[in-house]
C-alpha cells in the first residue's frame, strides 16, 4: 500500500524551491495575460486562461507543498471527491440559470 510511503517521507527542498519558482512565474504570466484583451478572439478566453493558470498553480501546491504526490490513495480520493462535490454545487447551480429563459436578466427588468 502507498500508505506507508507517506509516513516518514521527507520531501527534498529542491521540490519546494521548484514549486515556488513555478508559482512566481505563473503569477507573472497570469497578470501579463490578463492585461491583453483576449475577449476579442473569443468571449470567455480571458477567464479561461486565468482559471487554467490558477488550476495549475493550485495543483502544484497540492501535489508538492501538501505532499499529496507522496500521500496515500485515501488522501487522493478525498481530494478528488471534494472537487467532485464542488463541481456538483457549481455545475448544477449554474445549469438552472443557464437554462432559464431570458437570463442573464438586465437590472430593472
Amino acid at each position: 500500500m502507498a500508505e506507508h510511503s507517506s509516513e516518514h517521507h521527507i520531501v527534498p527542498l529542491k521540490y519546494y524551491f521548484g514549486v515556488f519558482g513555478l508559482l512566481m512565474v505563473l503569477t507573472a504570466v497570469t497578470v501579463l495575460v490578463a492585461s491583453f484583451d483576449l475577449e476579442h478572439i473569443w468571449g470567455p478566453l480571458n477567464i479561461i486562461v486565468a482559471m487554467t493558470v490558477a488550476v495549475i498553480k493550485a495543483t502544484a501546491v497540492v501535489l508538492i507543498f501538501m505532499h499529496v504526490r507522496w500521500s496515500s490513495k485515501l488522501t487522493q480520493v478525498i481530494i478528488i471527491s471534494g472537487l467532485f462535490w464542488l463541481l456538483i454545487l457549481l455545475v448544477m447551480g449554474v445549469t438552472d440559470y443557464m437554462a432559464r429563459t431570458g437570463w442573464p436578466t438586465k437590472l430593472g427588468q
Binding site: 462535490w85 456538483i88 448544477m92 445549469t95 438552472d96 440559470y97 443557464m98 437554462a99 432559464r100 429563459t101
Partner: peptide, 21 residues
C-alpha cells in the same frame, strides 16, 4: 442525495429544464 435539491424549487423561478433533471 446531493443531486436532487432542485425538487424543492419546482414552483420557484427555477428553469423547468433544470427541474426535469
Amino acid at each position: 442525495g446531493f443531486l436532487v435539491w432542485g425538487h424543492h424549487m419546482f414552483t420557484s423561478s427555477q428553469s423547468m429544464y433544470a427541474g426535469l433533471v
